[in-house]
Amino acid sequence: MTAAAAMVRVEGLCKRFSVPRREAGLRAALRALVRREYRVVEAVRDLEFSLAPGERVGFLGPNGAGKTTTLKMLAGLIVPSAGRVEVAGFTPSDRRPEFLRRVSLVMGQKRQLSWDLPAIDNFEFNRVVYEIDPVHYKRRLEELTALLDVGEVMRRPVRQLSLGERMKCELVAALLHGPQVLFLDEPTIGLDVSMQLGIREFIRRYNAEHGATVILTSHYMEDVAALCPRILVIDGGRLRFDGSIEALRRQIRPLRRVSVRAAALPDDPTAMGRVVLREGGRLVLDVAPERVPEVVGALVALPEAQDLAVHDAPLEEVMRALFGREEAADLGGAIGHAR
């Protein structure tokens, strides 16, 4: 991707926070009143990546990894300590109105809608703030409310909406002005499964129809797996992986998981692969990819074999393995080459 074609370009991005610290107890608290100690936390260290227009990208990482801080620097809310960020051709921290009209941020744990008013009043307010002309406003509102099925919901006070209904209205409010870049910070947090699916489907459809670049952080791996062809793994403020989920799986957990139920199991299944579970008539193995056809053939031949399945390792397991690895820092070598 050429620099000119990139919608988001990040070079050597760093963010350091000065955080007060003290020991436990009253004495330490009183001492901190007079003389407070600070410690510098490097929340983001030397990030480099670029995103093409229309890409859907997921930021993955454990709590405190620097995902949200990065997202907020891209949105222009936090000023970087060092490095360079460019989004839609603008430096986000300048917070120029022309830039702010091109981006939107939805946070699952914070709301922009006024609690006491129906969402429709909030939408009208956004129409004024973003200077959307009435014809476009009407068209977009109709489109978004139809896609998210909130035609009636938006007329009830926000405080009376369920979490899922509120999140749908938050999405409408965030998209009315047609942002080119959409930042989503845990948009499905706390939602039930069917609502999560609905929101995911909407985001995918919105991206496909409008070509907006979507950057997502989520603790629900299913969100990221379903929505983002590309993931950036951030840990300890550093970019540890940039590529597809498949590439990450191949790199971290290359073995495939094969499970079967049978009337009698082989006496020594370790010859086929690593035994994950052997319980009653059920056997679960981790098998090297090149040996899968051979192992499947052997398992099918077992007496009364049924429920034979071959899976990739679950993403949660991949992430657990990734963040638990001592040698994880070595993954840096894969950055940018693992699609």
Binding site: M7, P53, G54, E98, R101, R102, Y130, E131, I132, D133, V135, H136, Y137, R140, H177, G178, P179, Q180, E209, H210, G211, A212, T213
Partner: peptide
């Protein structure tokens, strides 16, 4: 509609 015309209706020429 695509990214190029996403901001249609909010562009500079329409603002007072």
């Amino acid at each position: 509609m695509n990214a190029a015309d996403l901001s249609e209706g909010t562009d500079a020429k329409g603002r007072g």
